[in-house]
Nucleic acid binder design. Sequence first.
DNA 1: ATGTCACGTCGAACGTGA
Length: 261
Amino acid sequence: MKLATWNVNSVRQRQHLILDWLERHKPDVLMMQEIKCETAQFPAQAFAEAGYECAVVGQKSYNGVATLVRGAFEVCTDHLPGFDNPAARYVEIRTQGLTLGNLYLPNGNSGGAEGYATKLAFFDALAARARELLRTDTNFIFAGDYNVCPKPEDCAPGALGPDDALVRPETRAAYNRLLWLGLTDALRALQPSGKAYTFWDYQAGAWDRDSGLRIDHALLSPAVAERLLTASPDKAERACERPSDHVPLIITLQDDPQATA
DNA sequence: ATGTCACGTCGAACGTGA
């Protein structure tokens, strides 16, 4: 099974790039963030013609998440339970024996103290959701733009200041609390150290200087982690014409041993 | 090297968020 998460920075601007990527990589699931449109404006027909059905939670201008799936699925929830905020940042579906939470965590650098508190509130609600899914022995993946560099090596030297919301100690602690519930960071399970950036800012020649960040992550519940085969950012995508500032993170899993043949 | 994009409000440049 092949899954990917990708902050596309406007699905309407990136539609042809995404369709081209789907054609080449043929994932079973693609979780997209920052679609930046209302649900009704989402180009569902174009993706349907490529063989994907979608679960879309959009809003005007900002945010928005959508999960593309080959084959049958059901929507579990169109918002993160316990996160009392109308922003379109979470959609959870169930397919092929997996619950897939697609998330776009608040950046936390705008809106002052309140904006940062919203980021931590999302983390709290996400941890509560993880505990609930673990309690019920649900196999799950939480994937998306976490807006967190978990370790110093996940942030290029000088790319961010020490007070940036993506690297603050409180931010890393919140991410670690989630991990320490028993989840596995797919990329780090297979590549324990070293550069694995998923984002390069449009500004200041960040791509040319390889001044990137690792902020897009896929966290796996224990039984799913046992099945992990590969995890890697698709770095080549950043060199395309008019790219997103993020690249896809692709993971592959062994077939479910519980599934009936 | 504060060197870029995308969106909405506008009806040309800005403000906002990233």
